[in-house]
Write a protein that binds this DNA or RNA. Sequence first.
DNA 1: TATGCGATATTCT
DNA 2: GAATATCGCATAG
Length: 204
Amino acid sequence: MATVRVPRLRRPELPVDTVDLARYLIGKTLVHDLPGARLAGRIVETEAYVVGDAAGHAFRGPTSRNRSLFLKRGSAYVYFIYGSAYCLNVASESAGVGAGVLLRALEPLEGIAEMERLRGTKELRDLARGPGRLAQAMNIDLRLDGVDLCTDRRLWLGGGVRPAGRIGKSVRIGLTKEAHRLLRFYERGSPFVSGPKRLISGPT
DNA sequence: TATGCGATATTCT
DNA sequence: GAATATCGCATAG
């Protein structure tokens, strides 16, 4: 397969506001360069965890687990949840302020054979649909916690290979606290978006 | 399509 | 001891 040419996103291009960043990242590219292969996917679903958000991991202040959320925007926060899944966030505010954007789903672009191996399935739609599957398909774990996605040579953010379609928004998935807030963003009509069908016909 | 459940580890109460 | 920003499988409608 031909290599996709992807320009890096520079930090000044990243919106300063958490919600703005969550919308901005739809249609952009997440790249993980491995020694033997490039894994890349188009971001189709995100969730914003804003300042003062009781559902956010940063809400109670920095701990050893969530400290990366307090790094400058563009930094990676990787955490382990439910004893089985890793999830990747992009820190979204100034250093010292805890907030981030959870990357929930990708449309696989490159390195699909490797993603299939990592995920143990050949079902394209299931390779990176959901945050835990996304991390597994992209070979992301705690070793990448805290890296700067604007400068790191392995894991980084790139521009869109194709413009984003219409962006929808909905409540976030899997929360009990702050459950009403419309902070989940996704590309309408994409089959690679996670969550129940009823969440993909809400307001834009 | 929806709902329910177990697995499993870290954090919080 | 309970909760958790999940997944995959099972079962029911």
